[in-house]
Structures are given as C-alpha cells and as structure tokens.
C-alpha cells in the first residue's frame, strides 16, 4: 500500500523526503559507478526497473479472498541488492504515481522510505542472517520476502501514526490502530508474496539466471 497523494501534512512529506535522500544518493552513486565502469549495464538496469514495475502491478491472490499487489522488495533485493533497489524503487514509485495515480508526489519520500529503503534493508538483513544460520536458499528467500513485505507495512503504519497520533493514546495508540488494520489484511498477503518469491527464485536458479554476468554486476551475487 502506498500513502496517497496529499495525505501527509507538509512537514512530514518534507521530513520523509529528507530521510530518504541519503539512501538515494548512496544508491545513485553506486549506479553512477556501475555505469561509468560498464556503460553496457544500462539496459540491464532498465529492464530490472521495468521488471519491478510490472511485478508490483501483478494481482496477487489473498487467502482472505481479496487480492493485492506484491511490493517486489524481497525479490528485488535478492536479485539486485538493496542500494540499487532503492533507486529503482524510487523511479518505479514515481512512475506509479504518474502512470497509475497510485501513491503521489508529496508522499513520494515517505513511500520510498517504506518500500524502497526499509523493505529492501529488512530483506537483505533477513536473507543474510538466514544464510549465516545455515538456512537453505528457499527458506532464506521466503523469510526475506515475508519480512520485507510486512516490514514495509509496519513502517507505513508508523509513518501514519507519527502524522496522526491518537487523541487518547498518542503515537503508540495510533500505530496499534494502523497495525491492527494492516495485520489482518497484510499477513496473508505477505505469506503469499513470500511463496511467490520462492517459486520465482527456484525457477530462476533452475535456469541458471544467477550466473548471468550483468546480474552479478548489479547484485554482487546476493544469490
């Protein structure tokens, strides 16, 4: 879920934009370095961004009977690494607001922070942690995608709680309210996205995609 256009007060819009900026600058510098050293990586980055955009537009079935869209944070991070995903997500979120009217320009910073920075960092930490603990690729990918999806929504809930504290119980109460609403709908969707990510990564590994030289350039072999 993206925070919709205009929903956050202006101070929060600017604040989340500033909070996202260092991560985006870091990711942009990494992409600039990749492109300077290997200009031929540009098409690879372009199709990766398009892949994330289209992936986030796929309708995902929920066990509750509704449907939603994957965040793509888990799969994107496993394939490309968190710093590249931050910039690709920022571009994808900008396109989602301009091509689909999902999210918005004033909430771009907040949405980039939750979906392009927090989600991928959680996925990366969980994936590396699971690998360090000896978990197989499948379990690592499942956990990374599950916690990235859920983490994105937890961060979104906290962003909303900071902007709209509950009159009686403050930020903590507002966070509980928003998390309560999302937990019902998002946990089944996070499980679904995690299962989908495992299916995709297993098929990609069977096809040897992780050995692709240009993918290695971007991801530094997250797989």
């Amino acid at each position: 879920m993206h925070i919709m256009e205009g929903f956050l007060p202006v101070q929060h819009s600017i604040g989340w934009g500033l909070a996202s900026a260092p991560f985006l600058v870091h990711g942009a510098n990494r992409i600039r370095k990749i492109l300077r050293e290997q200009p031929e990586a540009r098409p690879m980055l372009a199709v990766s961004g398009a892949f994330l955009f289209v992936l986030s537009a796929l309708k995902l079935p929920s066990v509750t009977g509704s449907c939603s869209h994957p965040t793509g944070a888990g799969l994107g991070t496993v394939l490309f690494g968190p710093s590249v995903v931050a910039v690709l997500s920022a571009i994808v979120l900008l396109f989602q607001s301009l091509l689909l009217a999902h999210g918005g320009l004033t909430t771009l910073g907040a949405n980039i922070f939750s979906m392009g920075i927090a989600g991928p960092l959680i996925a990366y930490a969980v994936f590396k942690g699971a690998k360090a603990l000896g978990a197989g690729i499948g379990i690592g990918v499942f956990l990374a995608a599950f916690f990235a999806d859920l983490g994105t929504y937890v961060v979104t809930s906290l962003q909303l709680a900071l902007a709209f504290p509950d009159p009686a119980s403050g930020i903590a109460g507002a966070a509980t309210k928003f998390l309560g609403v999302f937990a019902i709908t998002q946990v089944p969707l996070a499980i679904t996205e995690a299962l989908l990510t495992v299916v995709v990564v297993n098929l990609l590994l069977q096809r040897g995609v992780n050995k692709d030289a240009s993918l290695q350039t971007l991801s530094r072999s997250a797989l």
Partner: peptide, 13 residues
C-alpha cells in the same frame, strides 16, 4: 504467477 515472473526475467535479461 511464479512461472510468469520467472519466465519473464530471463527473457528480459
């Protein structure tokens, strides 16, 4: 959906 995404990515590569 998994097959669509997994088929898509190598084609895009």
């Amino acid at each position: 959906l998994g097959i669509v995404a997994a088929t898509l990515f190598p084609r895009l590569l």
